[in-house]
């Protein structure tokens, strides 16, 4: 009985740690958005200075926004994996049998 309770507690702590980790991972959105805002502001500034080059600047801006977004997307995916398909959980369940 006591052993079962202890293993349930350990399981709960594994889930807790995974959820806190997911929350921390999502903080990289702050930096991602900062970088994207910098790209967008620079592009707008350049378009204001050279309106005739607006089309090429816009396409370059979209591509660089997408590349800057990659790290944010990776963070989101890691958070989703930790929440819905936690690999640590299976390892732990196999460990306690």
């Amino acid at each position: 009985m006591l052993e079962a309770l202890a293993s349930v507690e350990a399981l709960a702590s594994v889930i807790n740690v995974a959820q806190i980790a997911a929350a921390i991972v999502l903080f990289n959105g702050v930096l991602t958005v900062f970088g994207q805002a910098k790209i967008a502001s620079q592009a707008i500034e350049t378009i204001g200075r050279q309106p005739e080059a607006a089309n090429s600047i816009r396409s370059v801006m979209f591509v660089s926004l997408a590349i800057a977004e990659t790290s944010g997307i990776y963070g989101l995916l890691i958070a989703i994996i930790l929440l819905f398909a936690n690999p640590l959980l299976n390892t732990f369940l196999r460990y306690i049998g």
Partner: peptide
Amino acid sequence: ISMSFRLFGNMLSGTI
């Protein structure tokens, strides 16, 4: 890998 994860992450976040 980065290209597929970018598309997948965006679509999955909308679905969620």
